[in-house]
Amino acid sequence: MIGSAVLYALGGVALFGMGLYALLAYPNLLRKILGMNVMGTGAFTILIAAAYRGSDAAPDPVPHALVITGIVVSVCATGLALSLAVRIQAVTGAAYLTPDEEDAP
């Protein structure tokens, strides 16, 4: 019988892996950005699992503080990635990372 903390941690690891797979496998930038968000959620889930201190004890507040900070960072990252993707679509016509063309330096 595995405890719920371990289950959460394994779930986090699975999310992290799925996000990483999406990031590597899909050429579309929006999917890559979503993949990065899923990866982040996986990392946060592992942190939350680390807060578990038994069924009758209050959870450790430190990982919660870390996750809140992490979510703020993740929102900024998503914003930056989306604005870059929008510019790439505006300049190249597609939200994909195509091989570089020859242009003047």
Binding site: L29, A81, L84, A85, R87, I88, V91, T92, L97, T98, D100, E101, D103
Partner: peptide, 8 residues
């Protein structure tokens, strides 16, 4: 284009 893709 190349700069934006490199940044991404």
């Amino acid at each position: 284009p190349n700069v934006l893709k490199a940044a991404m």
